[in-house]
Amino acid sequence: METRPDLLPAVAAVRDLFGAAAASCALVADAGDRLTFVAASGAGADRILGVELPVGRGIAGWVAMTDQAIAVRDVASDTRFARDVAEATEYVPRSVLAVPVSSGQGDMLGVLEVLDPATDLGSGWPLAVLGTCASLVGLLLDRSQGTAERLRPAELAAGLADGDFRSTQHAAEVLSAVAEHLRGRRG
């Protein structure tokens, strides 16, 4: 599977949002048996790009299999995870947030991960925010595949208000706006 530079702005925005060491997006290969890291920002990004993992490995596999989000406070005690990441990126995070990315039809597309976020995992809110970001990334993927229908701005606003991002197709604009806002705020 080829890397997806078109997803990089979204992944970089997510990294900014969480003040994280790194963020990445891995997509499920057509055969359904592997995850490929197609976009990454931050520590170890160059090394993780293009790396393939069986879906039965590590936190990304956990999320892809169950379609459930997870926040892990300290991955150091998971020797399997540490080895996977060390071999791939030479960067071993302490904490990980990972959420599933789905298409508008609900098909599993991949996993969005954040490494070492500056946010407090104990508060719980990071999973809600990252889950929303993942919905937008799913729309980006839908659009790139031409499967989403084009909506007018009013419909986009309605989708955002409802929290139903699955029906919007302008997710890229939303994520870009988030990134620009964050960059401006951080000066």
Binding site: D74, S77, D78, G122
Partner: peptide
Amino acid sequence: GVDVDVAWAGGGSIVATGNS
């Protein structure tokens, strides 16, 4: 389900958050 000490692969445990 927030910051729960759960069993983990390899016989260990870990502190994790999730609806699971």
